[in-house]
Simulated scan of single mutants.
Amino acid sequence: MTDHEALMTDRLARAEVDAGVFALRPDYRVLILSADGIVPGPSDDGNEALLRAAEAAAAAALGAGTSVEELPHVAAWREAYRAFGAKPQRTRNSLEALLRRADGGLPRVNRLTDIYNAISVLHQLPIGGEDLGRYAGAPALRRATGHEAFDTVAAGREVIEHPEPGEVVWCDDAGVTCRRWNWRQGRRTQLTTETEHALFILDALAPMADAALEAAANDLTVHLRRLGPDVRIARRLIAGPALATEREQP
């Protein structure tokens, strides 16, 4: 096992979701997927084809007068945001934000970001992507104290913000990596054209089934594997105690 493979295994094994998050949404599940051996590079024709397929899928899902907020998984995430005090009409989860942009064209950012954005829209679930090489420790999802640091940009300047107390945030040992569950990612760990080791977070709530979550991860894996001859993938599913007990029932 290489050093990077050992790092991937360790980060996945130590990833955690706080009990306070499961108290908000007992139906929450997260599939964390890590990828090592990525050959860095800019967006390519494969990205463009995938993004166009996602734009077409969004148009089909929103046809016949269906609004974004009526889509089942978007509606579930709006409820989850309200549960910790966020206003979903002002701070939209990443899936809803992408779907609202799809008609005018999804953003073209970089190869890795383009892939997970497209998979997010195609499978209708929020996905986040992080540069594992810039990560400090293991990912953790918890309710914020309000003192954690979050590096972002405001009015064109790099600034440090702090989440609201009780806000659901993804963190590593250095601070917040994503605010409001899956709303806005920080700059420190963002994916770039130089990223070789990446971490992806796939968020699910009911009514999304485990099989649909796994299908999204499988699709993401297929597209990541084309980014180098030696790409290695590892994944871990984390669910709350209620769902874990339910799965153990005969």
Rank of each mutant, 00 (worst) to 15 (best):
T192W: 04
G129I: 06
P72V: 12
G129D: 03
F150S: 11
N110H: 10
L213G: 08
L243S: 01
A198P: 00
R82I: 07
Q89H: 13
T152S: 15
D131P: 08
R226H: 03
L224I: 11
D18Y: 07
E70Y: 01
V109D: 09
G20S: 14
P139S: 07
L202T: 07
W183N: 14
V121F: 04
R29D: 06
R111L: 03
G65W: 04
R101Y: 00
G41K: 09
P126I: 05
A198I: 09
P107V: 06
D114V: 00
R108A: 08
H73G: 00
I238A: 03
E69A: 14
A204L: 08
A15P: 00
V17Q: 04
E130N: 14
R11V: 12
A6D: 08
A64M: 08
T195M: 10
S120A: 10
A118M: 02
P163E: 13
P229R: 03
F22W: 15
Q89N: 13
D173H: 08
L62Y: 03
P250T: 04
V222M: 10
R134T: 05
A59K: 12
T2C: 09
Y116D: 01
L220R: 02
P42A: 14
V74K: 06
E16K: 13
N117I: 00
G85P: 00
A57E: 14
A97P: 01
N47R: 08
V153P: 02
T177D: 06
A239N: 01
E194I: 04
